[in-house]
C-alpha cells in the first residue's frame, strides 16, 4: 500500500520561524565540522615544524578566517544552547515518583559547561 505523501517544496523551512530555527540548528554542525577540519590542519602543520605552524597562525589572522571563526563561534554557541534545551526532554531523572525539573537538569549542564570551558582555557593559556 502506498500512502499519500503531502508534497513539500524545498523551501518549506522558510514558511515558519520554528522551522527556520530548526534548519539553522541543523546547519550549525557544518560550521563545527569545518572548524574541526581547520583545527586538524593546524595539528598537522604543528607536526611539520615551527615554520609551518607559524604560517598557519598567520593564515588564521587573515580577515576571512577571523570572520569564519566568529560565525563558527556563534553557530557553536547556538548548538550548545539548543542541545542543553533539548537535553531535559531526553534525559529524564526520577527520584521515586517525582521527576527532577528540567530546569535543574539543564542548569547542571550549563554549570558543567562553564567549568569545562574554564579548565580548557586555563590549561591552554596558563603559559
Amino acid at each position: 500500500m502506498r500512502r499519500y505523501r503531502r508534497p513539500l517544496g524545498p523551501t518549506w523551512w522558510l514558511t515558519q520561524r520554528a522551522y527556520f530555527l530548526f534548519m539553522l540548528r541543523e546547519l550549525t554542525s557544518v560550521f563545527i565540522a569545518a572548524y574541526l577540519a581547520l583545527l586538524l590542519l593546524g595539528v598537522y602543520r604543528l607536526s611539520l615544524g615551527r615554520e609551518a605552524y607559524e604560517a598557519y597562525l598567520q593564515l588564521l589572522a587573515t580577515p576571512g578566517m577571523l570572520f569564519f571563526h566568529v560565525v563558527a563561534l556563534i553557530a557553536a554557541l547556538f548548538h550548545t544552547l539548543t542541545w542543553f534545551d533539548v537535553l531535559p526532554k531526553v534525559l529524564v531523572v526520577r527520584f521515586g515518583e517525582r521527576r527532577l525539573p528540567g530546569a535543574i537538569v539543564a542548569g547542571v549542564n550549563y554549570v558543567a559547561w562553564v567549568v569545562v570551558s574554564a579548565v580548557i582555557a586555563w590549561i591552554l593559556l596558563r603559559g
Binding site: 583545527l39 557553536a76 554557541l77 550548545t80 559547561w113 580548557i120
Partner: peptide, 14 residues
C-alpha cells in the same frame, strides 16, 4: 560539540 567546541573556537580561532 556542545561542551568543548565553543571554547576551542574562541581560543584557537579568535
Amino acid at each position: 560539540a556542545a561542551f568543548l567546541v565553543p571554547v576551542h573556537i574562541l581560543l584557537t580561532g579568535i
